[in-house]
Design a protein around this nucleic acid. Structure first.
Lengths: 251, 251
DNA sequence: TGTACATCAGTGAACGCGCGTTCACTGATGTAC
DNA sequence: TGTACATCAGTGAACGCGCGTTCACTGATGTAC
Protein backbone atom coordinates (compact mmCIF):
# COMPACT_ATOMS: atom_id res chain seq x y z
CA UNK A 1 0.00 0.00 0.00
CA UNK A 2 1.73 3.18 -1.08
CA UNK A 3 0.48 6.61 -0.20
CA UNK A 4 1.92 10.00 -1.03
CA UNK A 5 3.65 11.90 1.75
CA UNK A 6 1.16 14.76 1.85
CA UNK A 7 -1.57 12.23 2.54
CA UNK A 8 0.21 11.22 5.71
CA UNK A 9 1.07 14.81 6.56
CA UNK A 10 -2.59 15.71 6.58
CA UNK A 11 -3.43 12.67 8.62
CA UNK A 12 -0.78 13.51 11.19
CA UNK A 13 -2.20 17.02 11.46
CA UNK A 14 -5.59 15.65 12.32
CA UNK A 15 -4.17 12.93 14.46
CA UNK A 16 -3.03 15.47 17.00
CA UNK A 17 -6.54 16.86 17.15
CA UNK A 18 -8.45 13.65 17.51
CA UNK A 19 -6.03 11.55 19.53
CA UNK A 20 -6.60 13.40 22.76
CA UNK A 21 -10.38 13.38 22.66
CA UNK A 22 -11.32 9.73 23.15
CA UNK A 23 -9.58 6.43 22.94
CA UNK A 24 -10.97 4.50 20.00
CA UNK A 25 -9.97 1.57 17.93
CA UNK A 26 -7.46 2.16 15.15
CA UNK A 27 -10.10 1.64 12.53
CA UNK A 28 -12.52 4.19 13.95
CA UNK A 29 -9.75 6.72 14.53
CA UNK A 30 -8.50 6.28 11.00
CA UNK A 31 -11.98 6.77 9.62
CA UNK A 32 -12.36 10.05 11.51
CA UNK A 33 -8.98 11.28 10.35
CA UNK A 34 -9.39 10.32 6.72
CA UNK A 35 -12.87 11.85 6.62
CA UNK A 36 -11.41 15.09 7.93
CA UNK A 37 -8.53 14.93 5.45
CA UNK A 38 -10.96 14.47 2.57
CA UNK A 39 -13.03 17.45 3.67
CA UNK A 40 -9.93 19.59 4.13
CA UNK A 41 -8.66 18.75 0.69
CA UNK A 42 -12.13 19.34 -0.77
CA UNK A 43 -12.16 22.79 0.82
CA UNK A 44 -8.83 23.46 -0.84
CA UNK A 45 -10.19 22.32 -4.21
CA UNK A 46 -13.21 24.57 -3.71
CA UNK A 47 -10.89 27.56 -3.97
CA UNK A 48 -9.37 26.31 -7.20
CA UNK A 49 -12.39 25.14 -9.13
CA UNK A 50 -15.52 26.23 -7.29
CA UNK A 51 -18.36 24.18 -5.90
CA UNK A 52 -19.97 23.37 -9.25
CA UNK A 53 -16.80 21.72 -10.50
CA UNK A 54 -15.67 20.15 -7.23
CA UNK A 55 -14.40 16.77 -8.29
CA UNK A 56 -13.94 13.61 -6.25
CA UNK A 57 -11.16 12.50 -8.54
CA UNK A 58 -9.19 15.70 -7.98
CA UNK A 59 -9.60 15.40 -4.21
CA UNK A 60 -8.47 11.78 -4.27
CA UNK A 61 -5.54 12.60 -6.53
CA UNK A 62 -4.28 15.33 -4.20
CA UNK A 63 -4.54 12.96 -1.27
CA UNK A 64 -2.66 10.23 -3.07
CA UNK A 65 -5.66 7.95 -2.97
CA UNK A 66 -7.55 6.26 -5.71
CA UNK A 67 -10.86 7.93 -6.55
CA UNK A 68 -12.98 4.91 -5.75
CA UNK A 69 -11.63 4.89 -2.19
CA UNK A 70 -13.57 8.06 -1.39
CA UNK A 71 -16.78 6.09 -1.73
CA UNK A 72 -15.94 4.41 1.58
CA UNK A 73 -16.44 7.85 3.18
CA UNK A 74 -19.02 9.67 1.10
CA UNK A 75 -21.61 7.82 -0.95
CA UNK A 76 -21.48 10.45 -3.70
CA UNK A 77 -20.09 13.80 -4.69
CA UNK A 78 -23.24 15.53 -3.47
CA UNK A 79 -22.87 14.06 -0.01
CA UNK A 80 -19.37 15.47 0.21
CA UNK A 81 -20.79 18.87 -0.81
CA UNK A 82 -23.46 18.59 1.86
CA UNK A 83 -20.81 17.87 4.50
CA UNK A 84 -18.86 20.95 3.41
CA UNK A 85 -21.98 23.11 3.56
CA UNK A 86 -22.89 21.91 7.04
CA UNK A 87 -19.31 22.51 8.20
CA UNK A 88 -19.34 26.01 6.74
CA UNK A 89 -22.59 26.95 8.45
CA UNK A 90 -21.24 25.54 11.69
CA UNK A 91 -17.97 27.38 11.27
CA UNK A 92 -19.50 30.82 10.71
CA UNK A 93 -22.11 30.07 13.37
CA UNK A 94 -19.42 29.22 15.90
CA UNK A 95 -17.49 32.40 15.02
CA UNK A 96 -20.61 34.48 15.60
CA UNK A 97 -21.33 32.68 18.85
CA UNK A 98 -17.78 33.28 20.09
CA UNK A 99 -18.04 36.99 19.32
CA UNK A 100 -21.33 37.18 21.15
CA UNK A 101 -20.08 35.22 24.15
CA UNK A 102 -16.98 37.38 24.42
CA UNK A 103 -18.87 40.68 24.38
CA UNK A 104 -21.61 39.37 26.64
CA UNK A 105 -19.04 38.22 29.19
CA UNK A 106 -17.46 41.68 29.07
CA UNK A 107 -20.84 43.15 29.95
CA UNK A 108 -21.12 45.12 26.70
CA UNK A 109 -24.30 46.65 25.36
CA UNK A 110 -26.57 44.85 22.89
CA UNK A 111 -25.39 47.29 20.26
CA UNK A 112 -21.75 46.42 20.91
CA UNK A 113 -22.64 42.74 20.77
CA UNK A 114 -24.45 43.29 17.45
CA UNK A 115 -21.44 45.06 16.01
CA UNK A 116 -19.08 42.33 17.22
CA UNK A 117 -21.21 39.61 15.61
CA UNK A 118 -21.40 41.51 12.30
CA UNK A 119 -17.64 42.01 12.30
CA UNK A 120 -17.14 38.33 13.14
CA UNK A 121 -19.28 37.23 10.21
CA UNK A 122 -17.36 39.51 7.87
CA UNK A 123 -14.00 38.37 9.24
CA UNK A 124 -14.97 34.74 8.82
CA UNK A 125 -16.07 35.44 5.25
CA UNK A 126 -12.79 37.13 4.38
CA UNK A 127 -10.86 34.21 5.86
CA UNK A 128 -13.00 31.55 4.18
CA UNK A 129 -14.19 33.14 0.95
CA UNK A 130 -14.96 29.89 -0.83
CA UNK A 131 -16.88 28.41 2.03
CA UNK A 132 -18.78 31.67 2.26
CA UNK A 133 -19.63 31.41 -1.45
CA UNK A 134 -20.78 27.88 -0.87
CA UNK A 135 -23.42 28.92 1.63
CA UNK A 136 -24.32 32.50 0.68
CA UNK A 137 -23.41 32.59 -3.02
CA UNK A 138 -25.40 31.32 -5.95
CA UNK A 139 -26.76 27.82 -5.46
CA UNK A 140 -24.90 24.97 -7.11
CA UNK A 141 -27.01 23.89 -10.13
CA UNK A 142 -28.31 20.37 -9.83
CA UNK A 143 -27.62 20.24 -6.11
CA UNK A 144 -30.39 20.69 -3.61
CA UNK A 145 -29.52 21.11 0.03
CA UNK A 146 -30.99 18.36 2.22
CA UNK A 147 -32.78 18.85 5.53
CA UNK A 148 -29.51 18.37 7.42
CA UNK A 149 -28.34 21.85 6.46
CA UNK A 150 -31.35 23.66 7.90
CA UNK A 151 -30.31 23.63 11.56
CA UNK A 152 -26.72 24.80 11.09
CA UNK A 153 -27.93 27.45 8.63
CA UNK A 154 -29.85 29.25 11.35
CA UNK A 155 -27.11 29.61 13.95
CA UNK A 156 -26.04 33.14 13.02
CA UNK A 157 -29.62 34.30 12.73
CA UNK A 158 -30.38 32.91 16.17
CA UNK A 159 -27.49 34.87 17.68
CA UNK A 160 -28.83 38.09 16.19
CA UNK A 161 -32.31 37.31 17.48
CA UNK A 162 -30.87 36.71 20.94
CA UNK A 163 -29.07 40.05 20.99
CA UNK A 164 -32.12 41.98 19.93
CA UNK A 165 -34.26 40.07 22.40
CA UNK A 166 -31.88 41.01 25.21
CA UNK A 167 -32.12 44.67 24.22
CA UNK A 168 -35.91 44.45 24.02
CA UNK A 169 -36.25 42.83 27.41
CA UNK A 170 -33.82 45.34 28.86
CA UNK A 171 -35.53 48.55 27.94
CA UNK A 172 -37.74 47.99 24.94
CA UNK A 173 -37.10 49.00 21.34
CA UNK A 174 -38.68 51.93 19.58
CA UNK A 175 -39.44 51.10 15.96
CA UNK A 176 -42.15 52.67 13.82
CA UNK A 177 -45.28 50.50 13.41
CA UNK A 178 -45.48 48.19 10.41
CA UNK A 179 -47.52 48.99 7.32
CA UNK A 180 -50.74 46.99 7.33
CA UNK A 181 -49.60 44.87 4.38
CA UNK A 182 -46.76 43.33 6.35
CA UNK A 183 -48.50 42.78 9.68
CA UNK A 184 -49.78 39.21 9.14
CA UNK A 185 -46.44 38.05 7.73
CA UNK A 186 -44.50 39.69 10.57
CA UNK A 187 -46.80 38.05 13.11
CA UNK A 188 -46.23 34.67 11.50
CA UNK A 189 -42.44 35.11 11.43
CA UNK A 190 -42.48 36.15 15.07
CA UNK A 191 -44.46 33.09 16.10
CA UNK A 192 -42.19 30.85 14.03
CA UNK A 193 -38.75 31.83 15.24
CA UNK A 194 -38.73 35.01 17.35
CA UNK A 195 -41.44 34.42 19.93
CA UNK A 196 -42.02 37.37 22.20
CA UNK A 197 -40.50 40.11 20.05
CA UNK A 198 -42.70 42.85 18.62
CA UNK A 199 -43.48 41.98 14.98
CA UNK A 200 -41.86 45.13 13.63
CA UNK A 201 -38.63 44.09 15.32
CA UNK A 202 -38.78 40.63 13.78
CA UNK A 203 -39.28 42.09 10.31
CA UNK A 204 -36.42 44.55 10.79
CA UNK A 205 -34.19 41.72 12.02
CA UNK A 206 -34.77 39.52 9.02
CA UNK A 207 -34.13 42.43 6.68
CA UNK A 208 -30.98 43.40 8.57
CA UNK A 209 -29.64 39.86 8.35
CA UNK A 210 -30.19 39.78 4.59
CA UNK A 211 -28.58 43.18 4.27
CA UNK A 212 -25.57 42.14 6.34
CA UNK A 213 -24.97 39.26 3.97
CA UNK A 214 -25.47 41.67 1.07
CA UNK A 215 -22.70 43.91 2.35
CA UNK A 216 -20.30 41.04 2.84
CA UNK A 217 -21.15 39.51 -0.54
CA UNK A 218 -20.59 42.78 -2.35
CA UNK A 219 -17.15 43.08 -0.83
CA UNK A 220 -16.24 39.45 -1.40
CA UNK A 221 -17.68 39.07 -4.88
CA UNK A 222 -15.87 42.12 -6.20
CA UNK A 223 -18.74 44.57 -6.56
CA UNK A 224 -16.88 47.05 -4.36
CA UNK A 225 -13.85 47.05 -6.68
CA UNK A 226 -13.24 50.61 -7.81
CA UNK A 227 -16.07 51.76 -5.50
CA UNK A 228 -15.16 51.22 -1.86
CA UNK A 229 -11.54 51.28 -0.77
CA UNK A 230 -11.52 51.62 3.01
CA UNK A 231 -13.67 48.58 3.52
CA UNK A 232 -13.15 48.21 7.25
CA UNK A 233 -14.44 51.70 7.96
CA UNK A 234 -17.26 51.33 5.47
CA UNK A 235 -18.42 48.03 6.90
CA UNK A 236 -18.32 49.27 10.47
CA UNK A 237 -20.45 52.23 9.52
CA UNK A 238 -22.92 50.13 7.56
CA UNK A 239 -23.22 47.57 10.35
CA UNK A 240 -23.97 50.44 12.71
CA UNK A 241 -26.76 51.55 10.40
CA UNK A 242 -28.15 48.01 10.48
CA UNK A 243 -28.10 48.13 14.30
CA UNK A 244 -30.02 51.36 14.09
CA UNK A 245 -32.49 49.66 11.76
CA UNK A 246 -33.39 47.02 14.33
CA UNK A 247 -33.74 49.64 17.02
CA UNK A 248 -30.46 49.16 18.89
CA UNK A 249 -29.68 52.55 20.45
CA UNK A 250 -26.64 54.38 19.22
CA UNK A 251 -24.78 54.94 22.48
CA UNK B 1 -34.09 39.68 -35.65
CA UNK B 2 -33.65 42.93 -33.80
CA UNK B 3 -30.30 44.57 -33.32
CA UNK B 4 -29.99 45.44 -29.65
CA UNK B 5 -27.35 47.97 -28.69
CA UNK B 6 -25.69 45.37 -26.49
CA UNK B 7 -25.16 43.23 -29.54
CA UNK B 8 -23.18 45.95 -31.24
CA UNK B 9 -21.20 46.41 -28.08
CA UNK B 10 -20.23 42.76 -28.20
CA UNK B 11 -19.27 42.90 -31.83
CA UNK B 12 -17.05 45.88 -31.15
CA UNK B 13 -15.67 44.04 -28.17
CA UNK B 14 -14.39 41.30 -30.39
CA UNK B 15 -13.12 43.67 -33.02
CA UNK B 16 -15.20 41.95 -35.64
CA UNK B 17 -16.86 45.08 -36.87
CA UNK B 18 -14.43 47.40 -38.49
CA UNK B 19 -16.82 49.79 -40.10
CA UNK B 20 -20.50 50.56 -39.77
CA UNK B 21 -22.53 50.12 -42.89
CA UNK B 22 -26.21 50.80 -43.23
CA UNK B 23 -26.71 48.23 -45.94
CA UNK B 24 -26.06 44.78 -44.66
CA UNK B 25 -25.80 41.74 -46.85
CA UNK B 26 -27.04 38.27 -46.09
CA UNK B 27 -23.75 37.32 -44.53
CA UNK B 28 -23.74 40.14 -42.00
CA UNK B 29 -27.41 39.65 -41.17
CA UNK B 30 -26.82 35.96 -40.66
CA UNK B 31 -23.92 36.70 -38.35
CA UNK B 32 -26.13 38.91 -36.21
CA UNK B 33 -28.83 36.29 -36.01
CA UNK B 34 -26.52 33.40 -35.24
CA UNK B 35 -24.69 35.41 -32.60
CA UNK B 36 -28.00 36.17 -30.92
CA UNK B 37 -29.09 32.55 -31.18
CA UNK B 38 -25.87 31.39 -29.54
CA UNK B 39 -26.31 33.79 -26.66
CA UNK B 40 -29.96 32.83 -26.24
CA UNK B 41 -29.11 29.16 -26.11
CA UNK B 42 -26.22 29.88 -23.75
CA UNK B 43 -28.63 31.68 -21.42
CA UNK B 44 -30.84 28.61 -21.51
CA UNK B 45 -27.89 26.35 -20.67
CA UNK B 46 -26.99 28.66 -17.79
CA UNK B 47 -30.20 27.61 -16.09
CA UNK B 48 -29.42 23.93 -16.52
CA UNK B 49 -25.76 23.74 -15.62
CA UNK B 50 -24.69 27.09 -14.18
CA UNK B 51 -22.02 29.49 -15.30
CA UNK B 52 -19.07 27.42 -14.10
CA UNK B 53 -20.12 24.48 -16.25
CA UNK B 54 -21.44 26.42 -19.23
CA UNK B 55 -20.20 24.41 -22.18
CA UNK B 56 -19.68 25.46 -25.77
CA UNK B 57 -20.30 21.92 -26.94
CA UNK B 58 -23.68 21.78 -25.22
CA UNK B 59 -24.69 25.11 -26.74
CA UNK B 60 -23.61 23.98 -30.19
CA UNK B 61 -25.39 20.64 -29.80
CA UNK B 62 -28.69 22.32 -28.87
CA UNK B 63 -28.36 24.61 -31.87
CA UNK B 64 -27.63 21.71 -34.21
CA UNK B 65 -24.19 23.04 -34.99
CA UNK B 66 -20.81 21.51 -34.62
CA UNK B 67 -18.89 22.81 -31.62
CA UNK B 68 -16.02 24.21 -33.62
CA UNK B 69 -18.42 26.45 -35.51
CA UNK B 70 -18.96 28.59 -32.42
CA UNK B 71 -15.38 29.75 -32.69
CA UNK B 72 -16.43 31.82 -35.68
CA UNK B 73 -18.50 33.88 -33.21
CA UNK B 74 -16.69 33.77 -29.90
CA UNK B 75 -12.96 33.20 -29.67
CA UNK B 76 -13.35 31.19 -26.47
CA UNK B 77 -15.76 30.06 -23.82
CA UNK B 78 -14.76 32.96 -21.59
CA UNK B 79 -15.63 35.49 -24.28
CA UNK B 80 -19.10 34.01 -24.52
CA UNK B 81 -19.41 34.34 -20.74
CA UNK B 82 -18.29 37.95 -20.95
CA UNK B 83 -20.95 38.69 -23.56
CA UNK B 84 -23.60 37.14 -21.32
CA UNK B 85 -22.42 39.19 -18.35
CA UNK B 86 -22.47 42.43 -20.31
CA UNK B 87 -25.94 41.60 -21.62
CA UNK B 88 -27.19 40.86 -18.11
CA UNK B 89 -25.88 44.14 -16.69
CA UNK B 90 -27.42 45.97 -19.61
CA UNK B 91 -30.71 44.15 -19.19
CA UNK B 92 -31.13 44.92 -15.49
CA UNK B 93 -29.80 48.44 -16.08
CA UNK B 94 -32.39 49.04 -18.78
CA UNK B 95 -35.15 47.70 -16.53
CA UNK B 96 -34.12 50.09 -13.79
CA UNK B 97 -33.92 52.98 -16.24
CA UNK B 98 -37.39 52.23 -17.57
CA UNK B 99 -38.84 52.20 -14.06
CA UNK B 100 -37.15 55.49 -13.29
CA UNK B 101 -38.25 57.11 -16.54
CA UNK B 102 -41.84 55.98 -16.04
CA UNK B 103 -42.11 57.37 -12.51
CA UNK B 104 -40.24 60.54 -13.39
CA UNK B 105 -42.58 61.19 -16.30
CA UNK B 106 -45.53 60.69 -13.96
CA UNK B 107 -44.11 63.40 -11.74
CA UNK B 108 -43.65 61.09 -8.78
CA UNK B 109 -41.51 61.82 -5.73
CA UNK B 110 -37.89 60.68 -5.44
CA UNK B 111 -39.04 58.17 -2.86
CA UNK B 112 -41.58 56.71 -5.26
CA UNK B 113 -38.91 56.57 -7.96
CA UNK B 114 -36.55 54.81 -5.55
CA UNK B 115 -39.20 52.24 -4.70
CA UNK B 116 -40.01 51.67 -8.37
CA UNK B 117 -36.37 51.07 -9.24
CA UNK B 118 -35.92 48.65 -6.33
CA UNK B 119 -39.03 46.74 -7.36
CA UNK B 120 -37.81 46.71 -10.97
CA UNK B 121 -34.46 45.22 -9.98
CA UNK B 122 -36.20 42.53 -7.94
CA UNK B 123 -38.68 41.78 -10.70
CA UNK B 124 -35.88 41.48 -13.23
CA UNK B 125 -34.01 39.13 -10.89
CA UNK B 126 -37.05 36.91 -10.40
CA UNK B 127 -37.54 36.75 -14.17
CA UNK B 128 -33.88 36.11 -14.96
CA UNK B 129 -32.56 34.22 -11.96
CA UNK B 130 -29.57 32.71 -13.72
CA UNK B 131 -28.46 35.93 -15.30
CA UNK B 132 -28.83 37.54 -11.89
CA UNK B 133 -26.59 34.85 -10.40
CA UNK B 134 -24.11 35.47 -13.15
CA UNK B 135 -23.62 39.10 -12.16
CA UNK B 136 -24.44 39.23 -8.46
CA UNK B 137 -23.75 35.67 -7.35
CA UNK B 138 -20.43 34.08 -6.53
CA UNK B 139 -17.75 34.75 -9.11
CA UNK B 140 -17.01 32.00 -11.63
CA UNK B 141 -13.70 30.43 -10.59
CA UNK B 142 -10.96 30.92 -13.14
CA UNK B 143 -12.87 33.66 -14.92
CA UNK B 144 -12.00 37.28 -14.39
CA UNK B 145 -14.31 39.94 -15.75
CA UNK B 146 -12.62 42.18 -18.31
CA UNK B 147 -12.78 45.96 -18.42
CA UNK B 148 -15.74 45.80 -20.83
CA UNK B 149 -18.08 44.80 -18.00
CA UNK B 150 -17.32 47.82 -15.83
CA UNK B 151 -19.51 50.36 -17.61
CA UNK B 152 -22.67 48.23 -17.87
CA UNK B 153 -22.18 47.14 -14.25
CA UNK B 154 -22.72 50.67 -13.00
CA UNK B 155 -26.00 51.47 -14.72
CA UNK B 156 -28.30 50.59 -11.82
CA UNK B 157 -26.07 52.38 -9.36
CA UNK B 158 -26.13 55.48 -11.51
CA UNK B 159 -29.91 55.50 -11.54
CA UNK B 160 -30.03 55.35 -7.75
CA UNK B 161 -27.48 58.18 -7.53
CA UNK B 162 -29.61 60.25 -9.90
CA UNK B 163 -32.74 59.79 -7.80
CA UNK B 164 -31.02 60.74 -4.58
CA UNK B 165 -29.37 63.70 -6.28
CA UNK B 166 -32.76 64.94 -7.46
CA UNK B 167 -34.10 64.70 -3.91
CA UNK B 168 -31.06 66.47 -2.54
CA UNK B 169 -31.27 69.29 -5.05
CA UNK B 170 -35.01 69.56 -4.41
CA UNK B 171 -35.04 70.12 -0.70
CA UNK B 172 -31.90 68.68 0.81
CA UNK B 173 -31.49 65.46 2.75
CA UNK B 174 -31.13 65.18 6.49
CA UNK B 175 -28.72 62.43 7.44
CA UNK B 176 -26.65 62.26 10.63
CA UNK B 177 -22.99 63.27 10.19
CA UNK B 178 -20.45 60.56 9.42
CA UNK B 179 -18.11 59.13 12.03
CA UNK B 180 -14.62 60.55 11.60
CA UNK B 181 -13.23 57.19 10.45
CA UNK B 182 -15.34 57.16 7.32
CA UNK B 183 -15.03 60.81 6.30
CA UNK B 184 -11.99 60.55 3.99
CA UNK B 185 -13.37 57.47 2.25
CA UNK B 186 -16.80 59.06 1.81
CA UNK B 187 -15.19 62.18 0.37
CA UNK B 188 -13.23 60.08 -2.11
CA UNK B 189 -16.30 58.09 -3.17
CA UNK B 190 -18.24 61.31 -3.64
CA UNK B 191 -15.53 62.81 -5.83
CA UNK B 192 -15.27 59.58 -7.84
CA UNK B 193 -18.85 58.95 -8.79
CA UNK B 194 -21.37 61.11 -6.91
CA UNK B 195 -20.01 64.63 -7.34
CA UNK B 196 -22.01 67.23 -5.46
CA UNK B 197 -23.76 64.98 -2.95
CA UNK B 198 -22.97 65.29 0.76
CA UNK B 199 -20.51 62.52 1.68
CA UNK B 200 -22.85 60.95 4.23
CA UNK B 201 -25.41 60.54 1.45
CA UNK B 202 -22.88 58.88 -0.83
CA UNK B 203 -21.91 56.43 1.89
CA UNK B 204 -25.54 55.65 2.66
CA UNK B 205 -26.24 55.14 -1.04
CA UNK B 206 -23.47 52.61 -1.56
CA UNK B 207 -24.58 50.70 1.52
CA UNK B 208 -28.21 50.78 0.40
CA UNK B 209 -27.26 49.43 -3.02
CA UNK B 210 -25.35 46.54 -1.48
CA UNK B 211 -28.23 45.87 0.89
CA UNK B 212 -30.76 45.90 -1.93
CA UNK B 213 -28.79 43.21 -3.71
CA UNK B 214 -28.53 41.35 -0.41
CA UNK B 215 -32.31 41.28 -0.08
CA UNK B 216 -32.80 40.05 -3.63
CA UNK B 217 -30.04 37.46 -3.33
CA UNK B 218 -31.47 36.07 -0.10
CA UNK B 219 -34.81 35.58 -1.75
CA UNK B 220 -33.39 34.15 -4.96
CA UNK B 221 -30.73 31.93 -3.42
CA UNK B 222 -33.18 30.27 -1.07
CA UNK B 223 -32.16 31.79 2.25
CA UNK B 224 -35.73 32.97 2.79
CA UNK B 225 -37.12 29.44 2.47
CA UNK B 226 -39.01 28.63 5.64
CA UNK B 227 -38.36 32.20 6.86
CA UNK B 228 -40.21 34.72 4.70
CA UNK B 229 -43.40 33.74 2.93
CA UNK B 230 -45.06 36.97 1.80
CA UNK B 231 -42.05 38.12 -0.12
CA UNK B 232 -43.70 40.94 -2.02
CA UNK B 233 -44.83 42.66 1.16
CA UNK B 234 -41.54 42.00 2.88
CA UNK B 235 -39.49 43.39 0.02
CA UNK B 236 -41.59 46.51 -0.30
CA UNK B 237 -41.17 47.19 3.38
CA UNK B 238 -37.43 46.57 3.31
CA UNK B 239 -36.95 48.75 0.22
CA UNK B 240 -38.81 51.50 2.04
CA UNK B 241 -36.38 51.16 4.93
CA UNK B 242 -33.51 51.50 2.46
CA UNK B 243 -35.09 54.69 1.12
CA UNK B 244 -35.26 55.93 4.68
CA UNK B 245 -31.60 55.08 5.08
CA UNK B 246 -30.51 57.35 2.24
CA UNK B 247 -32.68 60.13 3.59
CA UNK B 248 -35.62 59.92 1.20
CA UNK B 249 -38.59 61.27 3.15
CA UNK B 250 -41.37 58.87 3.99
CA UNK B 251 -44.36 60.62 2.42
C1' DT C 1 -5.37 -17.41 25.42
C1' DG C 2 -5.20 -18.36 20.51
C1' DT C 3 -7.77 -19.01 16.47
C1' DA C 4 -11.28 -18.71 12.92
C1' DC C 5 -14.11 -15.80 10.82
C1' DA C 6 -16.24 -11.21 9.72
C1' DT C 7 -15.56 -6.59 8.64
C1' DC C 8 -13.86 -3.00 6.03
C1' DA C 9 -10.31 0.42 3.73
C1' DG C 10 -8.15 0.83 -0.24
C1' DT C 11 -6.83 -0.92 -5.20
C1' DG C 12 -6.93 -0.87 -10.15
C1' DA C 13 -9.43 -1.62 -14.16
C1' DA C 14 -13.30 -0.53 -16.57
C1' DC C 15 -17.71 1.81 -18.41
C1' DG C 16 -19.56 5.50 -20.76
C1' DC C 17 -19.49 10.00 -20.89
C1' DG C 18 -18.24 15.12 -21.62
C1' DC C 19 -15.01 18.94 -22.35
C1' DG C 20 -12.19 23.14 -25.05
C1' DT C 21 -9.66 23.87 -28.80
C1' DT C 22 -7.12 23.18 -33.37
C1' DC C 23 -6.96 22.22 -38.15
C1' DA C 24 -7.39 21.32 -43.02
C1' DC C 25 -11.33 21.15 -45.73
C1' DT C 26 -15.68 22.47 -48.59
C1' DG C 27 -18.83 25.25 -50.61
C1' DA C 28 -21.51 29.33 -50.56
C1' DT C 29 -21.49 34.39 -50.62
C1' DG C 30 -19.38 38.87 -51.66
C1' DT C 31 -16.42 42.01 -54.46
C1' DA C 32 -13.11 44.11 -57.77
C1' DC C 33 -12.45 44.73 -62.24
C1' DT D 1 -21.79 42.42 -67.62
C1' DG D 2 -19.59 38.33 -66.47
C1' DT D 3 -15.70 36.36 -64.35
C1' DA D 4 -11.93 35.48 -61.20
C1' DC D 5 -10.67 35.72 -56.82
C1' DA D 6 -11.20 36.62 -51.73
C1' DT D 7 -13.76 35.97 -47.73
C1' DC D 8 -15.91 33.37 -44.43
C1' DA D 9 -19.45 30.02 -42.06
C1' DG D 10 -19.66 25.61 -41.04
C1' DT D 11 -17.73 20.53 -41.11
C1' DG D 12 -15.71 16.48 -39.16
C1' DA D 13 -11.85 14.39 -37.30
C1' DA D 14 -8.57 14.58 -33.93
C1' DC D 15 -5.81 15.69 -29.56
C1' DG D 16 -5.45 15.23 -24.84
C1' DC D 17 -7.84 15.69 -21.08
C1' DG D 18 -11.18 15.02 -17.02
C1' DC D 19 -15.36 13.17 -14.84
C1' DG D 20 -18.66 9.94 -11.40
C1' DT D 21 -19.47 5.54 -10.37
C1' DT D 22 -19.19 0.29 -10.20
C1' DC D 23 -16.96 -3.93 -9.24
C1' DA D 24 -14.24 -7.93 -7.93
C1' DC D 25 -10.14 -8.15 -5.44
C1' DT D 26 -6.52 -8.06 -1.48
C1' DG D 27 -4.89 -7.72 2.88
C1' DA D 28 -5.13 -5.65 7.30
C1' DT D 29 -7.86 -5.01 11.51
C1' DG D 30 -11.44 -6.38 14.81
C1' DT D 31 -14.19 -9.84 17.35
C1' DA D 32 -16.56 -14.09 19.13
C1' DC D 33 -15.58 -18.07 21.13
Amino acid sequence: MERSSDFWAVLRLHGTLTRMSTVRGARERARIEVTAAIKDEARRRLAAEGAAKLSLRAVARELGMVSSALYRYFPSRDDLLTALIVDAYDSVGAAAERADARTTAAGESPRARWMAVCEAVRAWALEHPHEYSLIYGSPVPGYSAPQATVGPASRVGNILIGIVRAAYEGRGLALPPLPAALRPEAARMTADFAEGLPPEVTAALVAAWAQLVGLVSFELFGQFNRIVEDRDAFFTHAAGQLAQGVGLPSM
